[in-house]
Design a protein around this nucleic acid. Structure first.
Lengths: 196, 196
DNA sequence: ATCTTCTAATTGAACGTTCATTCGGTTACA
DNA sequence: TGTAACCGAATGAACGTTCAATTAGAAGAT
């Protein structure tokens, strides 16, 4: 039971958190509403006070977690710095978000590859607008090869997710230098080869 | 119904194919056995003649499809060519496999991010042994930066999957040059910067 | 060729379980 | 005293799986 959480946040947040933790362990179909209720220390009926259905709950969870991710990306960004520095900072933020929130990583990956995701395309673009702009700027200023930002983003994300999964699943200590090496792979891949 | 398929292959293959197509459209939990049976033109009980359970069916499907993928990667490989050429060929094979088999792409991605996958780690490595060796060779010969091949593979795969998804979901004609540009991103990212 | 026999393949209705959802009643609190 | 939050047993639909019965086909005998 998540009693400590319930005291701080509302029941709605508690339910979301329990859902997140359970889905990582048991997957979408493996976690019935009754299990979520029990884990959250709440009656099954109560969940329906906050969410219309299980689908609605999962969609709300996606909104919640992907917003948290989006918010973390440009933390500490400083427009005064070199663009390459800013890019590395952004990638480190992204990576550390996954490592610090493995439940979220697994959930988001499961969600994006499920039929749920098809209902959420427009919202998604709104949530990551500032990042799209950040990349577009890099393309305009010719730091990057001339690739559609909409393609660049999933490619970068794919690489970071792969690295984070590797880190988490192998229970391996991945030094900050290792992470920088991975980010360098991304940077070297997408930068205009003459610039740096 | 998949009548034409059933005539050629056995019922086992027909069931696997129906499962693959339906899972793409409806997801794991959205496709009941009864639906698979109907789509395959087979009675529900018959499926249990070939597979112990739904889980077993899905695991068998994973084995089936990931073997197909593994087999496609080194098609037309020629050890006489430059390593860079061989690498590009391998990446193109990989990419074209996804584009030619979108059902498989979606299924594999869903599977890898589900709790099913955790039961399949060792088999997985056996199936992709030849590719691991191919990458290890590239690292030994110092074509690549010195990164664990086990990390290199998911990173590369992540990039290609992201590109293929982009291609498929946007219903966009992606020229061969576009694909080569993406593969160049990978190559430029992982190659030793002095070599080429 | 024809019949017999045996096994494997196939069927689909029936079963039992699981699970999302409902709802009548209770509590908290403003 | 009224409203929103909360409870949890009850409901009913959906689904994976079973099984007794039927068919197909192969092997062997006549």
């Amino acid at each position: 039971m998540n009693v400590q959480l319930e005291d701080i946040c509302g029941k709605r947040e508690t339910v979301l958190n329990s859902t997140l933790a359970l889905i990582r362990q048991y997957g979408f179909h493996g976690t019935p509403m009754s299990m979520i209720a029990k884990h959250a220390g709440v009656a099954a009926g109560t969940i329906y006070h906050y969410f219309e259905s299980k689908d609605a709950l999962i969609n709300a969870l996606y909104e919640h977690e992907s917003s948290r991710l989006a918010a973390s990306l440009l933390v500490g960004d400083d427009e005064g710095l070199h663009y390459k520095e800013r890019f590395f900072r952004c990638m480190l933020n992204h990576y550390h978000f996954y490592i610090g929130n493995p439940d979220t990583l697994y959930f988001l990956e499961q969600y994006s590859n499920s039929p749920y995701a098809k209902t959420q395309v427009e919202n998604h673009e709104k949530r990551f607008e500032h990042i799209i702009r950040f990349f577009d700027y890099g393309i305009q200023q010719k730091y990057f090869k001339n690739i559609d930002a909409k393609l660049l983003m999933p490619i970068i994300k794919g690489t970071l997710v792969a690295a984070a999964n590797f880190h988490l699943r192998q229970h391996m200590v991945f030094s900050d230098d290792d992470i920088r090496a991975v980010i360098s792979m991304i940077w070297d891949g997408i930068k205009k080869q003459e610039k740096d």
